[in-house]
């Protein structure tokens, strides 16, 4: 299924850095996001224009992930030649990812309520 079926997203920009939130509609799907949407997966998905590292932050209390992508906006909002200088449309590209949406046993290893407060993973 498409990621869009279980999660929503908003893009933000600061200089040449783009961040994409990824929020489960149903908190029960948060472990699916954790399992399916890794920093590596996102880095690969956007490889055509994200030159820098991708860091994934986990916000368990919101059932959400936050991806921070460096060197992602063609040199920065103010000088980029891109049509969408802010990268506002990138959130829609993220939601196009094909995922396995099953809430399988592998997901149970990361209980939603007791998830560690703050974790991050990065892909250079």
């Amino acid at each position: 299924m498409k990621l869009r079926a279980i999660a929503h997203s908003r893009s933000g920009d600061k200089g040449d850095i783009s961040n994409l939130s990824l929020i489960a509609y149903d908190p029960a799907d948060y472990p699916v996001l954790l399992r399916e949407v890794t920093a590596q997966r996102v880095k690969t998905h956007f490889s055509a224009f994200v030159a820098g590292e991708v860091v994934r932050y986990e916000i368990a209390s919101l059932g959400a992930l936050n991806f921070v992508m460096r060197q992602a906006l063609g040199g920065g909002v103010t000088r980029s030649l891109a049509l969408d200088t802010h990268g506002k449309s990138l959130s829609s590209a993220l939601l196009d990812l094909e995922i396995d949406g099953s809430r399988g046993p592998s997901a149970a290893a990361e209980p939603f309520e007791d998830h560690p407060s703050q974790k991050q993973t990065r892909e250079d």
């Binding site: 908003r10 933000g12 932050y57 936050n66 703050q118």
Partner: peptide, 24 residues
């Protein structure tokens, strides 16, 4: 939720002139 994470990098350390805010 979308707005809480809008233009945020590390949610545990959102820097402003007033505080290093923690939204995590």
């Amino acid at each position: 939720k979308e707005q809480i994470l809008y233009e945020v990098h590390d949610p545990a350390c959102y820097l402003t002139p007033d505080v290093s805010a923690d939204f995590s």
